[in-house]
Computed example of a mutant assay.
Amino acid sequence: MGRLSGMATRTRRAGSDSASASPPASGARERPAADRLSLDVVQLIGAVVGRYHEEYELAASRHALTGAQAKVLGLLSLEPMPMRRIARKLKCEPSNVTGIIDRLEARGLVERRPDPDDRRVKLAAPTEQGRQTARQLRDGLDFAREPLAGLSRAERLTLRDLLIRVVGEEEAREVTSSPEHDPAPATAGAVGAQPATVPAPGRHD
């Protein structure tokens, strides 16, 4: 009797173990295992982002700006935009953007103006001094020029298109000028002419 009881206990345990090790339901998605090549790519992207952030903060500090302030100024130098759109690009709350705009406006770098399409909406736009500062910020970044100048235009286009596939077209539209169109030919000196498309590090102030 004891042997039968022991066998029954072992059978129940085996059944329990088998159930716990059963494959996931057909609707569940398994996360693919990270292979060595993918890990290398992620590490290299991290190194690129780290180097960009270091140089961006340094360039911003030369103008007594935080990274976030320089980021916003760079965005506005491309086109005026409302606070909510800036917040989406920065991936932060609109209230944080309001504080950044207040500080830039106090320094004469940004101004608020009504949206010509909807006068209830306020646009933030760079002043002439703000545009000059944004140009100086771009000129002060060697990050993109040095390594990317060694790539041909075809290689840069391939790299850009691969990155768009990685981040997705919707997000790419938020950080590039026009990912669905081939941009005008870029010279080595013009590489990285829009550095502010990468989110700046640090506090959003």
Rank of each mutant, 00 (worst) to 15 (best):
residue 6 G to A: 06
residue 6 G to K: 06
residue 7 M to L: 09
residue 10 R to F: 01
residue 10 R to V: 02
residue 11 T to N: 01
residue 13 R to D: 02
residue 13 R to K: 03
residue 14 A to C: 02
residue 15 G to L: 01
residue 18 S to Y: 00
residue 20 S to G: 00
residue 26 S to N: 02
residue 27 G to T: 08
residue 28 A to K: 07
residue 28 A to I: 08
residue 33 A to W: 00
residue 34 A to I: 13
residue 36 R to E: 11
residue 36 R to S: 14
residue 38 S to A: 15
residue 39 L to T: 11
residue 45 I to N: 06
residue 49 V to H: 09
residue 51 R to S: 12
residue 53 H to N: 08
residue 53 H to M: 00
residue 57 E to L: 14
residue 59 A to D: 10
residue 59 A to K: 08
residue 60 A to Y: 02
residue 63 H to A: 15
residue 63 H to D: 13
residue 65 L to R: 05
residue 65 L to G: 04
residue 69 Q to W: 05
residue 69 Q to S: 07
residue 70 A to Q: 05
residue 71 K to D: 05
residue 73 L to Q: 03
residue 73 L to P: 03
residue 74 G to W: 00
residue 74 G to F: 00
residue 76 L to T: 03
residue 76 L to W: 09
residue 78 L to V: 09
residue 80 P to I: 00
residue 82 P to E: 13
residue 85 R to N: 11
residue 85 R to D: 10
residue 86 I to W: 03
residue 92 C to A: 12
residue 94 P to Q: 06
residue 99 G to E: 06
residue 100 I to T: 13
residue 101 I to H: 04
residue 108 G to W: 10
residue 111 E to H: 13
residue 113 R to Q: 14
residue 114 P to C: 11
residue 116 P to H: 09
residue 116 P to F: 07
residue 117 D to W: 04
residue 117 D to N: 10
residue 117 D to C: 03
residue 118 D to F: 12
residue 119 R to Q: 10
residue 124 A to K: 08
residue 125 A to Y: 04
residue 126 P to D: 06
residue 128 E to I: 12
residue 129 Q to W: 02
residue 130 G to L: 08
residue 131 R to N: 10
residue 131 R to V: 03
residue 132 Q to A: 04
residue 134 A to F: 02
residue 137 L to S: 08
residue 137 L to G: 12
residue 137 L to D: 03
residue 138 R to Y: 06
residue 138 R to A: 11
residue 139 D to S: 12
residue 145 R to D: 00
residue 148 L to A: 13
residue 148 L to V: 08
residue 150 G to Y: 01
residue 151 L to A: 12
residue 152 S to R: 14
residue 159 L to V: 07
residue 168 G to I: 15
residue 168 G to K: 15
residue 169 E to I: 15
residue 171 E to I: 12
residue 173 R to K: 15
residue 176 T to F: 11
residue 184 A to N: 12
residue 184 A to C: 09
residue 185 P to M: 12
residue 185 P to N: 11
residue 187 T to K: 14
residue 188 A to I: 10
residue 191 V to Y: 07
residue 191 V to E: 03
residue 197 T to I: 13
residue 201 P to K: 07
residue 202 G to V: 02
residue 203 R to Q: 02
residue 204 H to K: 12
residue 204 H to V: 13
